[in-house]
Design a protein around this nucleic acid. Structure first.
Length: 221
DNA sequence: GCGACAG
DNA sequence: ATCTTGTCGC
């Protein structure tokens, strides 16, 4: 797929904060997506003692969830891991991998937060805004927010609140297994995002999209 | 000032 | 994120 953004990348946390504060106004938290036929998962892994960043993208058919295409790309690591600034470390490599795709995803599930972020601009929002594609943030752990305890059955969820606003949902994707944290990335509502995450999840905790991307990014079997 | 802190 | 085998439970 063709990627447009010639976005300037922050070299310092101060610059990153300014970019987040500016771009967050572009995030659309309502449904603005067409028919979803291709769902993609993106993930990143590191090599050579973290000096190289490798991104992987897996495109699956929806709702069948069959792998249709995948791509990987590596790039020198340029930004450290700092909570709240994950996108500046991972997105450059992700964009490079996305460029290699022939199929343009209708929806992308990201490994990390969307709106559930200190400045409401997690990696899912950043990627979605840059390439103007609907995205959902699916994180394995909490960055910000609190929530009530939720039932152990698959499908149950509770709103995630931070500083007085609902920023996402804690969702049980598998019975008796730790939940995942879902939040809007771009051009989708929270309710719709929860629905897609569940429909992309089969027998494991994580959606098939991110599981496949995960496998590719870490070079496993 | 003291914790908390996606991957 | 990543280093790593077996093992407990549905």
């Amino acid at each position: 797929m063709k990627i447009n953004c010639n976005s300037a990348w922050a070299q310092t946390v101060e610059e990153a904060i300014e970019i987040q504060k500016q771009l967050r106004h572009l995030v659309i938290v309502e449904n603005d997506l067409g028919e979803v036929r291709y769902v993609a998962g993106v993930d990143v892994g590191f090599e050579d003692n973290y000096t190289m960043t490798q991104a992987a993208v897996a495109v699956l058919s929806f709702p069948q969830l069959q792998l249709l295409e995948s791509a990987i790309a590596q790039i020198p690591t340029t930004f450290p891991y700092i909570p709240g600034f994950l996108s500046f470390r991972e997105i450059p490599a992700i964009l490079k991998a996305l460029e290699k795709l022939n199929l343009a995803p209708d929806l992308i599930l990201c490994d990390g937060q969307g709106i559930a972020h200190p400045r409401r601009f997690g990696i899912a929002c950043h990627l979605g805004v840059l390439i103007d594609v609907p995205t959902i943030g699916v994180a394995k752990s909490l960055l910000v927010g609190k929530h009530e305890e939720l039932s152990p059955e698959k499908g149950s969820w509770q709103p995630l609140r931070d500083r007085g606003e609902v920023v996402g949902a804690v969702l049980r994707t598998r019975t008796n297994v730790n939940p995942v944290y879902v939040s809007v990335g771009h051009r989708i509502s929270l309710i719709t995002a929860i629905d897609y995450v569940l429909r992309c999840t089969t027998k494991y905790r994580l959606p098939e999209t991110t599981r496949l991307a995960d496998k590719l990014a870490s070079g496993k079997k």
